[in-house]
Amino acid sequence: MAAVTAHGAPTLPRSSAWLLLTPALAMFILFFAVPFLTMATMSVLSGNPMVVPNPRFTTRHFERILDDVYYLETLWITVRLGLSTTIVSLLIGYPLALWLARARSRTTRTLLMMAVLAPMMMGLVVRTYAWLAMYSNRGVINGSLAWLGLTDEPIQFLGSEAAVVVALAHIYVPFMILTLSGVIARIDTRLEEAARGLGASSAAAFLQVTLPLSMPGILAGSLLVFALAISAYVTPIVIGNYNIQTLPMLVYQQISSSFNLGFAAALGIVLLIVALLLVGAYNRVMARAPGAA
């Protein structure tokens, strides 16, 4: 906000403030608003206006989605994957974030931070194929189990929803940790001490003070991981072994093999609406939690 400056600093006239905002605004319009509006328009047109001269307004794409159980089921699987991934990331990420935020020694913090960031830099495809190597019939997990004599037959991990969730959680948990540890680090440790001094056990102090005060981090981290997980494409295909269908896969098929842009756009819009509804509901629940400021 360039126009709102502190005392003594030169105040910009309104017009120049807008001028300063122009690059950001242009980026927003070009890369967010235009594609979104294009997609929304396509989802209610009978054909691609670039190819078909006079497309009509139609709701048939949406009707097709709502009439066919197959699409609704895919939507449900996508959301379910997103929710499971979010919960698993939260359960794994919270303790690590707490450790990262509260580690006294600088070395511990640096090492933890590197451990969190290093996998992120390897890229999603590499990590997905690493999981493929872990899961496959003669992979690391089955190999170890057989070597220990625990299993006779390899366990079929690939193609199971749990395997996809574990891989997704592994890939997206750094986002959860980074978001959470930032929030937790800003909670004054003296608040926990105050709670202890007033008779709370360390567990009670955590539940009564630290956890509620880290709600904003839980909220932000969960939304981030959820959004990333429901739009994931590579990992569900590779680890799901084409056994698990998610909405992003359907969208891709509609575009690449059926050339049905309108239907693909409608699928995207439906996913967006469902996600927004879930986010809204989550926000409301969290706002009523005791910790929300």
Binding site: D188, R190, L191, E193, A194, A195, R196, G197, L198, G199, A200, S201, S202, Q208, V209, P212, L213, P290, G291, A292, A293
Partner: peptide, 20 residues
């Protein structure tokens, strides 16, 4: 541990629970 010492403490920055 602190919770079993029967002491009341007033911190320099008060340390009130902001969410309560």
């Amino acid at each position: 541990p602190p919770e079993r010492r029967d002491m009341g403490m007033v911190f320099q920055n008060y340390a009130l629970f902001p969410h309560r």
